[in-house]
Simulated assay, not measured.
Amino acid sequence: MFRVRFASLFFVICSLFFGYTQSAIAAKVEATAAVAGAAQQSGKLNINSADAAAFQDQMIGIGEAKANAIVQYREENGPFSSIDDLLEVKGIGVKTLDRNRDKLSVE
């Protein structure tokens, strides 16, 4: 909920400084709200669409470097077919995966 409000505020500020139209701002806010709503409904982090910030925020034991490594691996090798594919990412081990398995999804 905080992210949606922050995004709304961010786009309003951008419109003042950069001249974005109100319809462009509304479309961006709706898209942000839809993504946030989808994440809240499932309650799990989709490892094929999450960004580095989401990995870092929602996974135990994942800092900036490992979060970036996950995104980079996905960009270079394509989408993950299972949660266990995270073990292929350098720095992600069995213990880290097991601590986070119930928070993750592949959609």
Rank of each mutant, 00 (worst) to 15 (best):
M1F: 10
M1W: 13
R3M: 15
V4R: 13
V4I: 04
R5F: 14
A7H: 15
L9S: 12
L9G: 11
F10C: 09
F10L: 11
F11V: 07
I13T: 13
C14N: 06
S15T: 05
L16Y: 09
F17K: 07
F18N: 03
T21F: 04
Q22A: 11
S23I: 10
S23A: 09
A24K: 06
A24R: 15
I25L: 01
I25D: 04
A26T: 13
A27K: 12
A27S: 14
A27T: 15
A27F: 12
V29P: 00
V29M: 04
V29W: 00
E30Q: 11
E30T: 14
E30L: 15
E30C: 07
A31L: 13
A31R: 12
A31D: 10
A31W: 06
A33K: 05
A33G: 03
A34S: 07
A34N: 11
A34C: 07
V35C: 14
A36R: 03
G37P: 03
A38S: 13
A38K: 13
A39N: 08
A39L: 14
S42I: 11
K44Y: 02
K44I: 08
K44A: 06
L45M: 07
I47E: 08
I47L: 12
I47M: 04
N48I: 11
S49F: 08
S49G: 04
A50G: 01
D51K: 15
A52E: 09
A52M: 04
A52S: 09
A53E: 07
A53P: 05
A53R: 07
F55N: 03
F55Q: 04
Q56K: 14
D57N: 12
D57R: 14
Q58H: 12
Q58S: 12
M59R: 10
M59S: 08
M59T: 08
M59H: 09
M59V: 03
G61I: 05
G61Y: 14
G61P: 00
I62E: 05
G63L: 05
E64I: 09
A65I: 10
A65D: 12
A65L: 15
A67M: 10
N68T: 09
N68Y: 07
A69N: 07
I70Q: 04
V71H: 02
V71N: 03
Q72E: 08
R74H: 00
R74W: 02
R74P: 00
E76K: 15
N77V: 02
N77S: 05
P79E: 09
F80D: 00
S81Q: 11
I83T: 00
I83N: 03
D84I: 02
D85G: 01
D85N: 07
D85C: 01
L86H: 00
L87S: 02
E88D: 13
E88A: 11
K90C: 02
G91Q: 01
I92E: 03
I92N: 00
